[in-house]
């Protein structure tokens, strides 16, 4: 910290340079370090409410838990609905409630990690709070980020939330079966995503039937450390 007297000689200027997101970034790095040390791959799953995050996770867990010892950290504002849906699918599930907060942060996820037996895990899926804005500013310390958008949310979900894609590795366009009913051109989602982040991987899914989930798994390219 640097103190400087201003011209009037009465008031002083104090340089703080305090990063308001600094603490979260530090904790996110710490989380990643802990995961790397244990050889665990972690994926943060983002998307708005009702886009199909939980259904995608259910499908991923069902297919992956025999190869990767999997845990799910389910973030929600107040309920345990999502955690209950994922339980009994072959993964350990822990619930984090943000008590109304609009995003998970590295501190909450770090506390979640403390409650898991990390030595017995290969993969952790983090279900973030349903929101396409705030979570983008709060990395939680995962290796990858998936953004889920669905056709029933309308045609503009990607272009209206471009910044959520900055750290995303894969975009999932869910409810592909509903595109016709919504009178949408599916390929437009891919074009929009590539316009914002060239090279981003795009997968079309129907999380109810599991269609597209094998392609998603392939694009996630998870391997045992």
């Amino acid at each position: 910290m640097k103190k400087l007297f201003t011209e009037d000689g009465k008031s002083i200027e104090i340089k703080l340079n305090e990063n308001l997101y600094g603490k979260n970034s530090e904790l996110a790095e710490k989380n990643l370090e802990i995961l790397n040390k244990q050889g665990i791959h972690a994926i943060d799953i983002l998307g708005s409410i009702g886009s199909g995050k939980t259904s995608i996770i259910q499908q991923l867990v069902a297919r992956l838990h025999t190869t990767f010892r999997t845990a799910v950290i389910a973030g929600d504002l107040t309920t345990t609905i999502d955690a209950d849906r994922i339980k009994n699918r072959g993964a350990k599930v822990i619930q984090i409630n943000t008590d109304g907060g609009c995003h998970l942060d590295a501190n909450l996820v770090g506390r979640g990690l403390e409650t898991l037996d990390l030595k017995s895990l290969d993969l952790i899926l983090v279900e973030n709070v349903g929101n396409l804005i705030c979570p983008s500013s709060f990395p939680v310390g995962t290796h990858q980020r998936i953004v889920v958008v669905s056709t029933t949310e309308g045609p503009y979900m990607i272009v209206k939330h471009p910044y959520i894609f900055k750290d995303a590795t894969v975009v999932v366009i869910n409810k592909k079966d509903m595109a016709k009913a919504m009178e949408l051109e599916l390929d437009q989602f891919r074009k929009d995503a590539l316009k914002i982040k060239p090279g981003i991987k795009v997968v079309y899914t129907n999380a109810r039937t599991g269609e597209g989930i094998p392609e998603l798994i392939e694009k996630l390219n998870i391997s045992k450390e």
């Binding site: 009465k10 002083i12 703080l16 305090e18 308001l20 900055k166 981003i200």
Partner: peptide
């Protein structure tokens, strides 16, 4: 597309001016 964001993700309190 192999780019890293180096600026713009943070917010700072740069300085304050006070009278003692």
């Amino acid at each position: 597309s192999e780019v890293a964001i180096i600026r713009g993700k943070d917010a700072f309190i740069r300085r304050i001016q006070i009278t003692q």
